[in-house]
């Protein structure tokens, strides 16, 4: 029974049980996730729902729709537009000049959460007159996040902090040129929303679905263990065209020797790489 005052703390063994159950009943494999943060997320969900371990397992087995809710709550969808302004600055000045040489550009924002990264890329491309020949794919494991991304609507409080980021990228236009404010929220302009396709894609189990000239996967690999990171990096390698670019988060790197050998480091501290073989 759920105890109201004293939250039940789960152990790593309990977590293994939950992961095993999910694999069996829902065919979702979370065994390659970082255990410490996954455990925190599962604990948070249990506290929120006032569930103990038995309740949780029961819900996974018997409650319809619980599984989608579970994925929504255990994933960390925290994101920003133009997160790490320096990264976007570098993208524009160092990567985009290469991209100019392609007649058509396909770009993948993998683990796009609520869409901010994909829209940032789209705005950046527009600034460099590349948007007309570009198409962006935003994918995430969380259907809820994908739904929010499709809307392209963000609260004014968020827009305010995104504006601070934007102003540090060093672009000519104003951030407010790219959205329309409506009372306490803003909608990203049509031209950007029409340039991105958001869909559900699971980096653990789904494979290559297109060929890309640029892949951004930022702040996703930190949630995976080394083995799963290697799998995902391989999917990216295979999804990139020759001389295409891979961008990881500022605290993520192409540590794996075998994969590393196929890339040139474009910017070490910002983790921008180019596929060279």
């Amino acid at each position: 029974m759920a105890k109201l005052n004293d939250p039940v703390h789960i152990t790593f063994e309990d977590l293994e049980d939950v992961v095993y159950l999910l694999k069996k009943v829902a065919d979702y494999d979370l065994s390659g996730y970082s255990k410490s943060s996954l455990k925190r997320r599962v604990q948070r969900l249990m506290d929120m729902e006032r569930m103990d371990l038995v309740d949780l397992k029961n819900a996974i087995l018997n409650v319809e729709g619980f599984f989608g809710y579970f994925i929504q709550e255990i994933t960390v969808n925290v994101t920003e537009m133009f997160r790490d302004p320096l990264f976007y600055h570098e993208l524009k000045n160092v990567v985009f000049p290469y991209l100019q040489t392609y007649p058509q550009l396909r770009i993948w924002s993998a683990g796009c959460a609520t869409g901010e990264e994909a829209y940032s890329l789209s705005i950046l491309l527009q600034e460099e007159n590349l948007l007309g020949r570009s198409f962006i794919y935003g994918t995430d494991i969380s259907q809820q996040a994908v739904n929010t991304a499709k809307k392209g609507v963000y609260t004014m409080a968020k827009i305010k902090s995104y504006t601070e980021n934007y102003n540090r990228v060093g672009l000519n236009s104003k951030f407010s040129d790219h959205y329309t404010a409506m009372y306490d929220a803003a909608i990203i302009n049509n031209e950007y929303r029409n340039s991105v396709l958001f869909s559900n894609h699971n980096l653990v189990s789904d494979n290559v679905f297109n060929e890309f000239q640029l892949i951004c996967c930022r702040n996703v690999l930190i949630y995976f263990d080394r083995e799963l990171q290697r799998r995902v990096l391989n999917v990216f390698y295979e999804s990139l065209s020759l001389f295409g670019f891979l961008c990881l988060g500022t605290k993520e790197s192409l540590y794996s020797q075998e994969i590393n050998a196929n890339f040139k480091v474009i910017n070490k501290s910002l983790n921008i790489y180019q596929k060279i073989r």
Partner: peptide, 21 residues
Amino acid sequence: AAPGYHLLIEPDRTFSLDISD
């Protein structure tokens, strides 16, 4: 610990970063 990320420790005694709220 890096600014901007939570720092956690895995059962195998490696670090793990997290950017949750």
